[in-house]
Each structure stands twice: as C-alpha cells, then as structure tokens.
Design a protein around this nucleic acid. Structure first.
Length: 891
RNA sequence: GGGCGGAUAGUUCAGCGGUAGAACACCUGCUUUACACGCAGGGGGUCGUAGGUUCGAACCCUGCUUCGCCCACCA
C-alpha cells in the first residue's frame, strides 16, 4: 500500500508571498538549474539575450524570460540536459551615458576624471547596480544556471573579442579608414547605421544662387536647393545629372561658392536626381554621405567645417565657434543680404537622431574601423536558405534576407571609454598598425617601442555578436562548446534582428563554422491595454516587479504566456494579470478540495467503478498532456496556456469536481469513493507538472502538499498520455450530459426558481434506446446533483410532444419537461442530416475529381495533393458517422 | 519607393474552409459544506468593404478603405 504525506492545511486563499522566495531558494540550493554535460542525455540550450547591466527588468524582458523559462523547464522535464545561460551586457554607450549623467549631477564630466578614473567609476557603478536586474530575473523564477553567469566585459569574453578582432583583421575583414559616418555630437562618438532613428520633420529648403565664373554660358548663376546652408562654406563642387538637358552645357564650367569666395567646378554624376530640387546639387564631401562618395569618384577635396562637438571650426571663417543652428541662421541671413537667397520653401524630410540621446546625428568624416560584412552575410543567408536556422514565425526570414542581402559595412569603432578597447597599436615611428591578441611591446614592422594603443572601443554589439560561443569559453576548446553549441533556441524581439540576431549568425558561422542556434523565435512587442507603446513619459509603463509584488510571479507569467500570440503585439493591463491571479486561486482551491478528500493512503482506480465523468476527466487529462507538449514544442505557448486554463477551470473545476462530490461524500458506496479518490490523485498528479513550466512556484507548493513523491515537481518527468486512462468517445458522451444539465439549469433560471429550492421532479424526454437515452439514463443521479432536483426521470417523448423546453406545476411539486439531444423532432433531424450528408458527398466528389486528374496529381505540390486526399478520407469518415446516426434515428 | 502585419461582441483578442468563441465590462439570481480571487443564467456580432473561387467562406484569391510597423531615399 502506497501512502503519501499530505498537507491538508492550506490557507483558504492562495498567497504568493513567501512561497515564491522559499521555493526559489530551495531550487538554487539543490542545484536544480545547473546544466551538466551528460552524454546520456540530449542537450537543450538557450543563451539569454543579455540585458543592459544598468537596466531594470521591464515587461518586455519579463515576457522574453517567461517564454525561455517555459521552454527550459519543459525540456528539463522531458529529460534533456538543459543549459539556460544568463548574463548581462556592458552596453557601452548606454551605460556610459548613465554614469555620465550621475556625474553631471555632481558637476563632474568624464573629461575631468580622465579615462582611467572614469572607467573605474563605471565599474564601481556596475558593482553597485549590476546585480539589480539579475535579482529581478530571479524574482520572475528564471531557471538559469547562475554559476555560468557572464558579462560581456569580463575576462573570458574580452579574450574572445580580441581573438575575433585579430582574426577578422588578419583575414582582411576588418579595416580602418577615413569615412563619413553617423556621428552623435553629444555622445561625441560614431554610431552605426542601425543606431540612427529617423523621424519626419519640417525643415526649410533654401534656394541659393551660385554665380557662374564663365560669362559665356547664357545664365548668370545656377540655382542650388539645400537644407544645410551652413555647409555651403565646405562646398567643393556642383553636380548635375550627365543627361540633364537643362544643365548639360554647364558641365566643366565653374561657380563661386557664396560666403566663401572659392571657385569650384560643375561636374556630372549619376547620383543626381534631375527631378528633385533644382536638379543641381552642392557637393560637400565632409558633411554628407552621398557627397562623400561623389567626392571620392571625382577626387575632390574634403573640407570639414563642423567639428566633433557640432561646432563650426576654423575652416568656417566668420562662422567659427557657432553651433550648427547658429551658423545656419547666420548663413541664411548673410545670403539674404547678399541677394543670393532666391527663396525658401517648407519641406518635410526625415532627420536622423541618436538612438541613445535623441541628438540630431551629423554625417562626420573621421578615422573609423569597419567590418567588411558582405562575405559574412553571404554565409548567413545561406544558412537560413539551407534550413540550418529556422525563423519562427517564418515571415521574419524575409526581413532578415532583405537586410542581409543589402548589408553595408559595419562601423565598429566608438569614441567612448567604456567598452572593449580596440586591440590595435599604432607605431609612432613608422605608422604601422600592429593588431594582436596579447598586448605587444613593440611595432611588429620596425620593432620600435614607440607604439600607442588605439583609443577607440568597440561597438557593444560586437561583443554581443559572439555571445552564443564566447559565453561557453571560446576561443578555448571547452566541452561545453561541443555539447551545448549550437544552442537550440534564441528568443528575442524583432527590434534587434539586425543589431544582434543577424550578427550572431555571421559570427557563429565564421568562428564556430556552425550556426549559433537552430531556431530563432521572434516575439512581438508588449504594449499597454490600448496598444500604445509603453514609455515613462506617457506613464503607461507596467513594471513587472510591481506586478510580481501585487499578484505574484506566477500570475504575471501565466498572463504573459496566455496572451502571447504569434505575429501580433501583446496588449497588457493589470486587470488582465488579475484574471490570471484569480486562476492561481482557483487552482489552489481545487487542490485544497482534492486534498480534503484524499487520505494519506493512495487508492487504486478500479476500472469497473468508473462512471462517465471519471472517464471523461481521465481522458481529457491525457489529451491535455499530449496537446500541451505538442504546442510547447512548436513554441505556441499562448494556446498551451489558454488550453490549460480552460481545462482546469472548465473541465476539472466546473464539471468534474462538482460531479465527484456525491461519491466523495460516500453516497455511492466505499468502492466508488476509493476509485474517485484514485481519479483525483491521478488527475492532479498529471496536471500539476503540465502547469509547472508556466507557474512554477504554486505548482511546487501544491506538489509538496499532495506529497506525490517527496521530490521537486521541477524534477518530475513530463507526463505522457496514458492509454489505460484514455476512453474513446467519452468526451462526446459527456457533452450530451452537459447539454442536458445546461438546459435544465437554463429552465430554472428563466422560471426564476430560486437556486436553493429543490425541484421535486424533472422529466427528460429522450427516444427510447437512443444513445442519448443510454447516457442520460446512466447519469440521472448526477443530473439531480448538479441541478438540484429530487428525482429526474427519463421518459420517451409523448406523441403530442412538439418541441421546446417547458416548465410546469411550480407550486410544491415542480416538474420540468426537457427535450434533449437527438430526441426531439426526429424528422427535422433526419432532414438536416440528410442534407449534410449530401453536402459532404459533393465536397468529397469534387476533391476526388481533382485527384482523378493526372495533371493535378503530377503538378501540384505534394502537400496539396496530400491535403486533398485527407479531405476525401475525412469526408468519407464523416459520411459514415452521419449515416450511422441517420440509421439509428430512423429506427 | 520596397516589404510586413492588423481590421471579429462595449473593450482587448482567440478562431483561419463545415452550426460565430474567450476574458474583462454589462444585466438577473445566489453566503449551494474548495474557491464571492466564487457559482448559475443572460443580453450583445449581417466577422472593414466590393467582387471572385467553393456544395459551403470570418477563414482562400483580387481590388478598395483604414490603422500600425520595418527598410531605403530625402541635395
């Protein structure tokens, strides 16, 4: 005889306080999150998208992490050796900004401190605040292997960054050069194309006259339209389209630059759109990316007039020292006074802003480091085309291809202090650049000791791109890499597909010669209840930690899981979380009910003693176990979570628990009671593990209360569907009973019979010997129980019976007459079925006709043909079922 | 300019070829011995629009209207 140590003293209401922290501490203590290399087991691994160290957990993280935790916990229960590797990102520019802001409050700038001291301060900041987000992740219940926590700037990862940089450089895939880049004057650093956010804004379009030097061309001047008059002073040419009828004759002639009194040539270039503006473009190679390219093609001078802080420099003449805006106003004023401004128009154009600080981005000519991305991207595209990486949902594949196929070189140098310093040393004697993994002491070319390290650091995303393998010990040959790489799954938002996902794919293929992950799941954005993006300024931010305090981590997790749908934003509000908080209580009380009715002794289920509702709940439990696993495997956690919710609240609580009460009270005898107890045991023992990945804390608590095995639910195997508890047809049979009960309750409510009043008698009319009559006949006592009727009888429909429910004789002896199921208008039902059979037959015939055409079978894709065959088979099965029904009706 | 997604009950969304669903909100009635964080019942939708395919369309195709997102260009 098996016994369990039950805890029957659960509080009346579920309270997540204490429970969540208690179990998390125990899981950690027993190393349940630890990933072990186990050759006997299959590996499942996820590296967490590392949040910024300075950050705080927001609801987007909470969703991302809940998803990953559900996957990891499920896979663990399925017997995989699971690694969920956590960590944080040093987030170069973001972190530097945060610390700079804090210093600014004390009136200190980073330049006051100097590089070394400033970086020291950032590390101090990290030491103080860096664990905050980690602790928040723990509150959510993340089952990460915290022993393996990494930071993108720790020693191991720094080593990986250097190795990658040096190898790419030696391969010619990293180069240095003077190019025009996106520059944030406030951050005083270059940023990549991706870090620029464009916004439509109103601006002025100034039409400026450039006097022609040659007097013999008809016109006196040519007209150039520009939005940036402050850069006129840096103009080095005017470009027109080579086939422009209007300006062809001016090519090779010269104009005088207004405000600068320089003579510059008129050149031809295809870049000019003859339809836009005046058809003439001023070329300022130092301050416009297109002009820069034109300048290279025509070998033009690059005159820089704006410095790195957005101030006009010594080349700007009288405008020197002004800000860009001041210089613009002054230039316009001067042009006007000189009579060289023809007109000003309003124009909407998009202006780039720094992603981090919102400052208008300037195109800026400077010495920078770049990754030549084309060869890396080609392999990245191939990997997806070959199916070595699968995008979920598939649609993102297109976005990825589009970007990868048009990829531009990646500017990786940042003029910051916080980050991986570029491992390049310039020789002050011969100018040679030595790039090395270990700090060199001399120039590798002339052996001079007079060398100096590059002051720039790398783009944060450079180290993030290595995350899947750098965190596992690369470049060393670690067993982790063999066992857990490629990782199984990457879960992240679409906003960092280019920043991160694409780059991980490129780097993984280059350095590991394999993809970084098999599947990449792209989830949607979390918005507020009205579909607005959450932002602090709008005040609509839902703080996951406040939600955890208020409703518990389980409720938040269940909400996020249940709301998740592929390819659509998720709208979250606290009332939604409340709904799932109520679900926790429902589950808690259902368990409490079961515990109150279970002894320590485990009762056997006697198959002979099973009633319809017992078979029903056992069957549904097996179905849900199977279905939930399938859904999680296909990353559809939303449907899985909603399915579990409906099962627990509907099938289990509303129906089964109510129907089990008479037996548990002993009204049906000892054998029935024992078997019902057995069923309860079985159902909860199966259901709690299914819920565990979603709501780990409460399920662990309940698992312990049931005393199922003295071990953690976390370590329990995923329940497989059991054949012995799967009964064919019972769900359909049960629905006949459910319909009868609902119809009777409906009658009561409509007749305003008070709930507490017991009806003395209800009559259910059903065709004698029909399947419905058999089902109902066997469950009359259940109908009495569920509908509060003293006596329910089953009678054949009287001849005069028409249709529709009715209630009569309300005083004292109440009687309910009730039509149910296949009982009523037999002829009408026969007609309906006959019609349906005819329809399906037609459908089957048309499918069959398609299949009979050789051209269809040969040419159509196999799956389409398969689907057509399926339709025929399904249709025929349906016809058979309907005909059987028809036959039983006709008797 | 290129691409993607949405338009279904008052609200937020499931459903994606076979009798319109959930949650919240609303209405009616209930301290029914697990749960008022609850129970039972109810009202409410010509599934954006016009065509087409089909025996059958919220679902597939085409056009339109409308909202949102991404990429590129913007002298």
């Amino acid at each position: 005889m098996t016994t369990r140590k039950r805890n029957r003293n659960l509080d009346k209401n579920y309270s997540p306080d204490n429970i969540e922290q208690k179990w998390y501490a125990q899981w950690l203590e027993h190393g349940l999150f630890n990933a072990e290399i186990n050759p006997e087991a299959k590996a499942f691994s996820i590296v967490i998208p590392p949040p910024n160290v300075t950050g705080s957990l927001h609801v987007g993280h909470a969703f991302d992490h809940t998803f990953q935790d559900i996957m990891c916990r499920t896979k663990r229960m399925e017997g995989y050796s699971v690694l969920w590797l956590p960590g944080t990102d040093h987030a170069g520019i973001a972190t530097q900004n945060v610390v700079e802001k804090a210093l600014a409050k004390q009136g200190i700038s980073r330049y006051d401190l100097g590089r070394e001291e400033f970086v020291k301060r950032v590390w101090e900041w990290k030491a103080e605040y860096g664990s905050r987000i980690i602790n928040q992740m723990k509150r959510l219940g993340n089952s990460c292997d915290w022993r393996r926590e990494r930071f993108t700037l720790d020693d191991g990862l720094s080593k990986a960054v250097r190795a990658v940089f040096v190898r790419l450089y030696k391969k010619g895939l990293i180069y240095r050069g003077k190019y025009i880049v996106n520059w944030c004057p406030r951050c005083a650093t270059a940023i990549s194309d991706l870090e620029v956010e464009y916004e439509e804004s109103q601006g002025n379009f100034y039409y400026v006259k450039y006097p022609l030097v040659e007097k013999d061309c008809g016109e006196k001047y040519i007209l150039v339209a520009t939005t940036r008059p402050e850069t006129i002073i840096g103009d080095v040419a005017i470009a027109v389209h080579p086939r422009s009828e209007k300006y062809k004759h001016l090519i090779g002639k010269h104009v005088i630059v207004p405000l600068a009194n320089r003579v510059i040539p008129i050149i031809e270039d295809n870049m000019v759109d003859p339809e836009f503006g005046t058809g003439c473009v001023k070329i300022t190679p130092a301050h416009d990316p297109n002009d820069f390219l034109v300048g290279l093609n025509h070998n033009l001078e690059q005159i820089q007039v704006i410095d790195s802080r957005g101030i006009m420099n010594e080349n700007a003449g009288k405008y020197k020292g002004m800000t860009i805006e001041q210089a613009r106003r002054e230039s316009v004023k001067d042009l006007e006074e000189l009579g060289q401004l023809l007109k000003t128009e309003q124009i909407t154009h998009s202006v780039g802003h720094c992603q981090r600080c919102g400052t208008t981005v300037e195109p800026y000519l400077s010495e920078q480091w770049f990754v030549k991305t084309k060869p890396l991207a080609d392999r990245g595209v191939q990997a997806v085309k070959d199916g070595r990486i699968r995008w979920v949902p598939e649609q993102w594949e297109k976005t990825y291809f589009n970007w990868m196929e048009n990829i531009r070189d990646w500017c990786i140098s940042r003029q910051l202090w916080w980050g991986h310093r570029i491992p390049a040393w310039e020789c002050k004697d011969c100018g040679h650049i030595t790039v090395a993994e270990v700090d060199p002491t001399e120039c590798e070319h002339c052996h001079s000791k007079n060398i100096e390290q590059e002051s720039d650091v790398l783009d944060t995303w450079f180290s993030s791109a290595l995350w899947p393998f750098s965190t596992m010990g690369w470049p060393e040959d670690k067993p982790e890499l063999k066992y857990f790489y490629p990782t199984s799954l990457m879960v992240t938002g679409f906003d960092i597909i280019f920043f991160w996902v694409a780059r991980m794919i490129m780097m993984g293929l280059e350095f590991m010669d394999d993809v970084p992950f098999r599947d990449v799941y792209i989830h949607s954005l979390i918005r507020d209840e009205h579909g607005k993006k959450m932002s602090k300024t709008k005040g609509n931010v839902i703080d996951p930690l406040v939600m955890i305090e208020q409703y518990g981590a389980d409720a938040l997790r269940m909400t996020l899981a249940a709301l998740s749908v592929q390819g659509r934003d998720i709208l979250l509000s606290s009332t939604r979380i409340e709904t799932y908080r109520f679900f926790m209580n429902k589950l808690w009380n259902a368990s409490r009910f079961a515990l109150m009715n279970l002894d320590d002794e485990v009762r056997e289920i006697d198959a002979e003693q099973l009633h319809l509702h017992d078979k029903f709940i056992l069957t549904r439990t097996q179905e849900v176990a199977k279905r939930t696993r399938e859904l999680i495997d296909s990353y559809d956690i939303g449907t899985a979570a909603r399915g579990l919710y409906d099962f627990v609240w509907g099938d289990l609580c509303d129906w089964y628990l109510e129907m089990s009460k008479p037996a548990l009270k002993g009204d049906e005898g000892e054998a029935r009671k024992a078997t019902t107890q057995g069923v309860l045991e079985e159902v909860f023992r199966t259901t709690l593990p299914l819920l565990h990945p979603f709501i780990p804390f409460v399920t662990e608590e309940l698992w312990a209360a049931f005393g199922f095995n003295g071990d953690y639910i976390m370590r329990t195997s995923w329940p497989d569907a059991k054949d012995e508890y799967t009964f064919a047809g019972v769900v359909e049979e049960m629905s006949v009973l459910q319909d009868a009960v609902r119809a009777l309750r409906n009658l009561r409510a409509e007749a305003h019979v008070p709930p507490q009043q017991k009806l003395s008698r209800a009559v259910i009319r059903a065709v004698k010997d029909s399947s419905a009559a058999k089902i109902l006949g066997a469950s009359l006592n259940q109908i009495e129980n569920l509908c509060r009727v003293s006596e329910v009888v089953l009678e054949a429909p009287a001849d005069e019976w028409t249709h529709g429910p009715s209630l009569s004789g309300m005083s004292g002896e109440a009687e309910v007459r009730l039509p149910v199921g296949d009982v009523l208008d037999v002829e009408k039902e026969i007609a309906r079925l006959t019609q349906e059979v005819a329809n399906i037959e037609k459908a089957v015939a048309s499918s069959q006709a398609r299949l009979d055409k050789p051209s269809f079978v040969e040419r159509a894709p196999a799956e389409v043909v398969e689907k057509e065959r399926g339709k025929v088979a399904e249709g025929q099965a349906q016809i058979a079922r309907l005909k059987a029904n028809l036959e039983s009706l006709s008797r």
